[in-house]
Amino acid sequence: MKQTQTLNHPLDDLLRTDRIPHIWCPGCGIGTAFSACLIAMKESGINLAKTAMVSGIGCSGRGAGYVKLDSYHTTHGRAIPFATGLKLANPELNVVVFSGDGDLFAIGGNHFIHAARRNMDLTVVCVNNFNYGMTGGQAAATTPHLARTTTTPMGNPEMPFNLPLLAWASGATYVARWTILHARDLAESIEEALQRRGFSFIEVLSPCPVNYGRRNKMKPMDTLRIFKEKTLIKNNAQPTELGIDFERGIVLGKFVDEDKPSCGELYDKTCRPSLTQGTAA
């Protein structure tokens, strides 16, 4: 009998393969965003034994459950403050927050802006699928105006956040946006962010065909087509111009990349200079 050769996936060593299959639906983009994140971790050369992933609750929040690193699946909206405690307790760690738009910007919005203000040394990857997928497709703080969800059956009367603008205004020192169709740019961006000190934020636009797409006349391929045809890469674009408009177009790219001391470094300098003299890099 012919032997079949089993090839390992190149990311297998970073995955809890005993937890696969994952929970993400067919057509969902989270897996692509997650892969990009793992590729970035691998390529960046950071010490993976000193790298932790923290997630909140939701579809994207399941990320922490699949990565074979120290990983923490916390409470809804609280991945960032949990990660803040983790990082401050052990400054050697690289701490990556991988979560969704509902988790990070509705229930967790306050923590996001404060971590950005402090320039907490975290890499925050937000998968934005424009709605709450886990609970069956409710309106989020990112749902476009007039879009239909189960809690906006007549269309969303509210306006969504412009996430890169919010991140920039709050003090994030690295801000980028990609879609899952731009997987390489995304991985490179996350890799770059991992090597930066301070608060890095990467928004990843993702289709949610099962919940968002089907209520908004977007089949899986339609969303990807928009990501291909209606996006424009414009590095250093004005954050105020980054509102998402599926009709007029969506700006992608790296918008902010500044080198500023992180929260931990400023704490050392301000509060315990005598203890850290000569040890700072």
């Binding site: 923290v54 923490y72 916390t74 409470t75 909206g77 609280r78 960032i80 403050p81 949990f82 990660a83 803040t84 405690g85 983790l86 990082k87 401050l88 307790a89 052990n90 760690l93 306050n110 923590h111 404060h114 704490y267 509060c271 315990r272 203890l275």
Partner: peptide, 24 residues
């Protein structure tokens, strides 16, 4: 040799405390 942080609210404070404990 320790760290103090004033968080943005008590929800964050408690989350940070649990996170710090996981950090050892």
């Amino acid at each position: 040799g320790g760290t103090f942080i004033q968080m943005e609210d008590e929800i964050a404070a408690m989350a940070a405390v649990v996170g710090a404990s996981c950090g050892g």
